[in-house]
Computed example of a mutant assay.
Amino acid sequence: MRTLKNLIAAGAASLISSAALAADLPPPPMYVPPPVEDFGGWYLRGDIGFSNQQVKSLDNALYHDPGVSVQHTGLGFDTAGIFGLGAGYRFNNWFRADVTGEYRGKSNFHGVDVVTVNGTPFGTNTYTGSKSEWLVLANAYFDLGTWWCITPFIGAGVGGSANTISGFTDTGQPAASLAFGPTATKWNFAWAVHAGLAYKVNPSLTMELAYRYADLGDGITGDMYTWNGVNAVNNPMHFKNITSHDLRFGVRWAIDAAPVYAPPMLPLMRKG
């Protein structure tokens, strides 16, 4: 009986001693997840798409002759392709900026005006021709959060547009007339606003589907001349306030992409 009591007392003493020793030891290190990096970096981009363009009005020196009134109807352009390249920098998860240059392909122009002289209908003019542009923009974008790898964004850009009018022809009826406008290019201040969705395929590659409204300024032909080369007054045709609703598909390639994940930090094992 005494032996059993001695064993119980010895076990209790050993348990108390172990608990006291454990209390003196430092706590095991806790797992701390790695911080999420607000990653930025350089990227390249490419875009293709198509335009839907309008012109507010046409203007010519002859429109301002005394008693002449001109009413435009059906001025417009056909759809044309857009091809662009650019480079930019992503500052953090919500702000990035880039510089883009693009060629906007030739778009056929068509329009009609009705001419009235001293209140009496005089005739109509039917216009044809084509237009193309080189557009350079500096853009800034705000990414609005990411859900299932999809990031909506908005943005704005400013820059310049070189608008080229070519093959311009003016055919008059019923008083038969024919005039031509030589090819000419005009540089303008341009601006744009953007909205779209971006899908991150992997850390290096992001695809975009975006809408853009672009104000491209004005266009101008060379000095108009008749079928026999006669022209008594300098009267190039002015295209006033050219705008476009663009739909674009783009890709962004990150030059220094963030890693897919950070390996977890494992606690150190104590020896002894």
Rank of each mutant, 00 (worst) to 15 (best):
P34C: 13
F122Q: 06
Q54I: 09
T79L: 11
F168I: 00
D246W: 04
F50G: 13
G84Y: 09
N60K: 12
N52M: 11
M224V: 12
P26I: 09
L7T: 07
L135G: 02
Q71T: 12
A232R: 11
D59I: 02
P174A: 03
G159R: 00
G181A: 04
G181P: 00
H72G: 09
D78A: 11
G172M: 08
K5L: 15
N92M: 03
G196F: 02
F189P: 00
T185N: 02
N234C: 11
W191Y: 15
L209G: 15
E37Y: 14
W134K: 04
Y89Q: 03
N241K: 15
S132E: 07
A257W: 03
V114L: 10
A262K: 14
T100K: 06
P29I: 09
W134G: 10
A138L: 06
V201Y: 15
T171V: 10
V117A: 11
K271R: 13
G67A: 09
I48A: 12
I8E: 14
P35V: 05
K271M: 10
A254C: 09
E102S: 15
V117L: 12
H64Y: 12
I255H: 01
V201C: 08
A13Q: 13
K56E: 13
F77Q: 01
D215Y: 13
K131E: 08
A179Q: 04
D170V: 01
N235I: 05
R252N: 15
D113F: 01
A179M: 07
G84Q: 05
P34Y: 13
D223P: 01
A156F: 09
A61H: 06
T164D: 08
A179T: 07
S244Q: 06
R96W: 06
T185D: 05
Q53K: 14
T151Y: 01
V32C: 13
V55D: 07
H194S: 07
A61S: 14
M207D: 04
P263R: 05
N125K: 05
S17M: 12
V201A: 15
Y31E: 11
K200Q: 13
D223V: 10
N231Q: 12
Y103T: 00
G111R: 00
T120V: 11
W147S: 07
A262C: 09
L197T: 08
Y43V: 04
A254F: 12
I154G: 08
G84R: 07
E102I: 00
H72Y: 14
T169C: 07
I154F: 09
R252C: 04
L85P: 02
G40R: 02
N188C: 06
M224K: 08
L144K: 02
V115A: 04
H238I: 10
T226I: 01
T120Q: 10
L62Q: 11
G145F: 06
R90G: 06
I48R: 08
F249S: 05
A97H: 03
H72V: 02
V68M: 10
G219V: 01
V158N: 08
H238N: 14
A214W: 02
K5W: 14
V115R: 06
K271D: 12
G145Q: 01
M265P: 00
S132R: 07
P264V: 13
A80D: 02
S130M: 02
H238C: 05
G157R: 02
A162N: 04
T126V: 04
F249D: 04
F239P: 01
D98I: 00
A10G: 11
P236Y: 03
N52I: 07
G196K: 03
S166N: 04
